[in-house]
């Protein structure tokens, strides 16, 4: 859905659901997911429908993901960092996260 105009920042290596994803410093987690072509970041607790980032400004909460073990973080507000482990969220929240 999106391509990078220019590779301005240094490369940052993340994993998303265990798979390596190459991001750029200055990316938020949500931007990195979009740039990597990951088409949804969670499924809803109510019907299991897939959701992707919608507003990218902290309003919609559709970009919730698990980051380094902490669940339901707003991917659009968290800058990427080297070695970060991102997991998409499926359905209802799991106990302990």
């Amino acid at each position: 859905m999106f391509k990078r105009l220019a590779e301005a920042g240094a490369a940052v290596a993340l994993t998303v659901d265990g798979k390596p994803v190459r991001a750029v410093s200055g990316d938020t987690v949500a931007a990195a997911l979009l740039a990597a072509g990951i088409d949804h970041c969670r499924t809803t607790p109510v019907t299991g429908a897939p959701r992707a980032p919608y507003c990218l400004m902290g309003i919609c909460f559709d970009c919730l993901v698990t980051i380094d073990g902490v669940g339901s973080r707003q991917a659009c507000l968290v800058p990427v960092s080297e070695g970060m482990k991102v997991e998409t969220q499926q359905g209802k929240r799991e106990a302990g996260r």
Binding site: L34, Y54, C76
Partner: peptide
């Protein structure tokens, strides 16, 4: 606004 946000902050362009 979302597309504009990633264009400004990350240089991502709709493809």
């Amino acid at each position: 606004g979302a597309a504009q946000t990633v264009l400004k902050a990350q240089g991502l362009l709709p493809d």
